[in-house]
Structure formats: structure tokens, C-alpha cells
Amino acid sequence: MTKPFPFSAIVGQDDMKQAMVLTAVDPSIGGVLVFGDRGTGKSTAVRALAALLPPIRQVAGCPVNSARKADCPDWAEVEDTRLVNRPTPVVDLPLGVTEDRVTGALDIERALTRGEKAFQPGLLARANRGYLYIDEVNLLEDHIVDLLLDVAQSGENVVEREGMSIRHPARFVLVGSGNPEEGELRPQLLDRFGLSVDVTSPRDVDTRVEVVRRRDAYERDGKAFLRDWEAADADLRKAILAARKALVKIATPDAILRDCAALCIALGADGLRGELTLLKTARAQAAYEGATDVSRAHLRRVAPMALQHRLRRDPMDEAGSATRVMRVVTETLGPIQAAAE
């Protein structure tokens, strides 16, 4: 398989890249939703992210990518218990997918050939400790969405069917992309995504030419192109790893906690999930920037992506949700100059 387009070579789309890097720093932020026009590099960025992420250490034969031998589920009957490095899994969830394939089902092959009742793990098992990518997430059928919500919430996949009772860990980061013109996403699912960013096609001719030029170079001579961007990607990976280490040491002043609460109250964002995500994202941002504690500047940077999809829906508001968030941020935290002092 050809290597995906390098993450650092994606032109512009800073918000999207930023959001993805932050979930890589702290996977517990809970995923990214990318909404926007066609052909703006949404799919490219997700696939690039996979290549960028550091490998995970896992039991070689384990279907749910367990980190230790003791964590492997009983039903898997893992034979190969060596610990190996594998690339972070990124699993595609295609639109027309059946419930069987998502949750896993009876292994019909073993049933037919050996007459044994065994479990065949599905996509959720493969996505454990990695990313679950749903393109056109807003077109996904409702019953699959319900199922995903349930698993994303509990971090565990429970299968009760065909006389089997199976459970296994399924902690993954949801990455969804889609085009809002084709249909909206249910608020319940929106809320499950940690961050949300809007992407648009760049309007400026020079930027567009650059996008086309790089893509063309990548397709014509992939090896050379990847070599050119290898260093940049490696730097980014290093920065992410450093930020992951630094994350635990980031101090969070009480004033920032109060700011988070004030922001969420002012915006009327439902539930505490928004507040928690905002704080986590700001911490990840601080760690990524190499700061020692979270500041208002970090909050300001991440507030739109952490909160814009949690606003109580005013479907007819002319201004985009991001604009509304920025307005409230400015009202609550004061204008940018004041923060810089």
C-alpha cells in the first residue's frame, strides 16, 4: 500500500490540523468532527494522521490490540503473546456497514468447518486504542449511530447475540467528516465529538495552486515527496510525544477553571462535557506549545473548536457557531490586548 500524504505537507486548514494534533496529544479529548466542502483535504488529513502517530505497543495476536497479555479477552484465545510495535490503528467505518461488521458476530467460518461457536471481532475491536474514522458521518444510518454512541460512551463493546455474550474494550477516538449541506448530525452525536472544526476551500489562488502543486508532486514521485517532508513530520511527531509527556505536569490555575465555567455558562452549552473538553484541550494546547501552565491565550485558541458544536441549537442563526463562540470569548475574557498584558 502506498504511504499516505504527509501531514505537514497539507496546505492551510490550520484549525483542522491543530484539532487533530491536540487529540493525538490527549486522546481522552474525544475525537474530531470535520465539517466542510468537498475536496478540502478532510480524508487526506485523517489518513495522514495515522502515519504521523507513534506506534502502539501491543500483544501481537490480540484482536483488540491489548497492551498487556493479561488484558487480552478470554474469547480471543490469543496464541501469539509477543509484544510488538504496530502503527496506531485507523479503522474506516463505511456508510453502508452492517451491525454485524461493527460489533462483531458469530465466526461463521469456524462454525461451519469445525462446528465451534466462536466470536469474530468487528470494526470496534480493531479500532481499540486507535481511531475510528467515519466519512460522511451525517449520512450514517441511525441504528449504527446509536450503537456507536453507546460504545463511545462506555468504552466497551457488548455483544449479546446468537447465544454469545461477549464484551471487549473499545476505546477509540471518533473522527468524523461530512458536508452539512447533505444533512445535519443529531445533537447527541455532535456532543460526543470532543472538537469540531469547519473547513472551507481556500479562496486565494496562490494557496490553491500550492495545494495542487504539492498533491501533484506527491502523486508523480511519492518517494521523493515523502522524503522531503519526512523531517517535518518527524518534528511534529516528536512535538506530540513531548507534549504527551508534559501533559501531566501542566498546571491549571484556578482562574482558568473559573474562566472555563464562565465561558460555558455564557454560551449556554449543555452539560459539563463542554467544560471538561475545553479544559483538556487547553491543557493539551499548553503542553504542545511547551508552556508550563494553561493561560487565557490557550483557552482563546481552543474555545471555538471545543465549544461550537455544543451550543444550544439555533438553526437559523446567520453567523456561524464559531463566530458566536468567539463573540462570547471576547465578552467573557476581554479583548485580546487585555489578555496579553
Partner: peptide, 29 residues
């Protein structure tokens, strides 16, 4: 290989035709 100018011409054409997708100039190239 397409020259820088060729890329630019195609991108500008797309802009003039009101085509947003960036796949269009690539495929045309």
C-alpha cells in the same frame, strides 16, 4: 510534468467557473 503556470491556469479556470473542489484542477492537470 505540469509547469507552475499550467497549475495556475487550471486553478484560475476553476475559480472563474465557480468550482470549489480542489480535486478538479488536479484531475484536469
Amino acid at each position: 510534468a505540469l509547469t507552475e503556470d499550467d497549475h495556475r491556469t487550471l486553478v484560475e479556470t476553476c475559480a472563474a467557473l465557480g468550482i470549489d473542489s480542489l480535486r478538479a484542477p488536479l484531475l484536469a492537470g
